[in-house]
Amino acid sequence: MSALPLPRTTLLAAALSCTLVATVARADGISCRECAPLPADYTLEPQSCETPTPLVFGKPSKARPTSTQRGVFVDVDLTGVGAHPARIWLGVSHSTVPYYAIFQGTSKTASSCGALGGFEVLADFGTSLHWSPAPASLPYVRISSHTRLGACAGLNSVATVAWLALSKRWAVLNAYDHGDGFCAGDEPDPSVKLHAEGLKAYRSGDFTTAETLWRKALPLGKAVSDLGFMFDQRGRSKEAERWLVAAAASHSRPEAWLNLADLYWKTGHRPLAAKVYRGYIYMFNLGARPKHGKPAPTPVKRALQRASKD
């Protein structure tokens, strides 16, 4: 279901926790838990910020960060070994548009920044903005918001700010808005059929058609994940990373975690691979070892073996 043409939103980022919820009010008032201004010794100059990698899908924001911000820092490890840290500032400008800024290493000057597209279409209703750091301390942060429009319909916005290890660049992997509805009589989601048709084309070796159909099925999680897998199998590793990170961050599909881990492993990014393998194991609640008396599936055995190789 396509997004509704609604007015500009009033959003903000809020407190540091595993999953943060900020209450968002109308334009005449903002409620924020534990938000703070960007520290005085940090510098954000939007005009000089590096332009991030183009979106995997979605749309950029028309707004820009400003010199008036409130938000929260999230620390990330770019390589998996703690040698190249970075800080992601998630904040809100004076015009109430969510934005991010990247401070790499010990630098207190932002190297990348931008407002988050997709969020601007949310209605001026009370809503929530959530952010959550990646499981296993991977170098990305997911930001999402959901507005309930009625008893059986809602509007969602999603963005993922991530470090791409293979390209050595920051990216906003997906910034999109989409409606959801569970009302009686709702028509089936056409994305499901498009994905099925794409899967049939893939299995027949028609990769061009599969890619076209899966792109039309976005933001369906299976399409995001399968595009990443196909690009990896076709030798398009850098492109595959973007889609697999997007799938893991936004849809929590175990297959995406396993495929991303295998991608990092074979491209020599072993510490990151180990972290992603642990994330894959966590997705299945396997802990440190298979259940007693039952052999683990082959992918799980591979993950358990490689998860300790960092």
Rank of each mutant, 00 (worst) to 15 (best):
G80A: 04
Y140P: 04
L116Q: 07
S61T: 00
A307G: 14
L260D: 07
H251M: 01
I30N: 13
L173P: 05
D262T: 13
K216R: 14
G29E: 12
V121G: 10
R278T: 07
F103Y: 14
R33W: 11
V92C: 07
G150T: 04
D232A: 15
L263D: 05
R289C: 02
A162N: 01
H146G: 11
T68S: 12
F57K: 00
S93G: 13
R148S: 09
S137E: 14
G279Y: 05
R169K: 15
Q104R: 12
S111E: 06
P46Y: 03
D124K: 06
A217G: 03
R169T: 11
A184P: 01
W89S: 06
A153T: 14
K275F: 00
D77R: 06
T127G: 03
D28W: 11
N285G: 13
W89I: 08
N259C: 01
V56T: 10
R215H: 14
K216Q: 15
A15Y: 11
L129A: 08
R289H: 11
V24F: 01
A151P: 01
G58H: 01
A248P: 00
K200H: 04
G29M: 12
A256D: 08
A136D: 10
A210H: 08
A27H: 12
A83R: 11
A288V: 03
S191M: 04
T127Q: 14
A223E: 09
A240D: 08
T160I: 13
P5Q: 06
Y42I: 07
